[in-house]
Amino acid sequence: MTEKNEFWRWEESRWKNPDLDWENAEVITLGVDVGSVSSQAVILCDGELFAYSNMRTGYDSSESALNAASWALEGTGLTLDDIHFKVGTGYGRVNVTFADRNITEIACHARGGNLMYGPTVRTILDMGGQDCKVIRCDERGKVVSFLMNDKCAAGTGRGIEVFTDLLGVPIGEVGQRSLRVEMEPEPVSSTCVVFAKSEAIGLLHAGWSTEKVLAAYCLATANRVVSLLERVGMVKDFAITGGIAKNVGVVSRIEKILGVSALEPKYDTQIAGAMGAALFAKALAEKKAKTG
């Protein structure tokens, strides 16, 4: 497959805080979130964001974990040995072989969401590559209630990927283009992504524009995750994390159905899990220092 045909390919990224110097930090911690599609590493200096990386998970999860960590460390002068405590999380957390501890992505998302969106956030919807999580948390970022659906591709990033491939629309443009419709169409009726794809082919044959099909699928995705949100119960403030949080077509439709605006993200929405892992690492490093 040539590069130009990989419509699903999203942009990998890294960032370093120019205003922070790790040499002044007392506690340096690392969180690595190995998801089924993307992996992130977050480095915190005394609980403040110092650097992060966000990249595609390869076939080998342990390699992906190491790659994400190395990319975040690159050019900072830090090495893995300088990190006081490392926590692995995500679907592939057991493969973060260099981690001092593993913590579930549910707990990490709650903790990371608390820092990224502030202590008023009570409901976090994480729309990942191969799952969808609804997490309710308290003002300290502790999980109150959660639900995770990883059985079915409907309502996940993989579902959107299938449509980018079918329609030849780069994943970064899906949201915007789905909003370019005069009237909101009926949502794609099939829940199953495989059947939704056949349905979309029929709609294209019936003369629907690419934008209209995208609108119908983004709406179906929004309906899907809202039904999961309703099971757990949505309490304000509300935040969306994960890759689909960058898709304005899905996000705006979720907001419209719920009648609630999601908090504006201050950082890359995909790093919430790794951020939480790094925060857990900080707490564990301090506990370790206290107990010797």
Binding site: S36, Y59, Q130, A153, R158, G159, V162, C192, V193, V194
Partner: peptide, 17 residues
Amino acid sequence: AQCAVFAESEVVSLIHA
């Protein structure tokens, strides 16, 4: 995977392995 779309990724991993 119980889902056809996810199983497809699993098959790709098996080919790779």
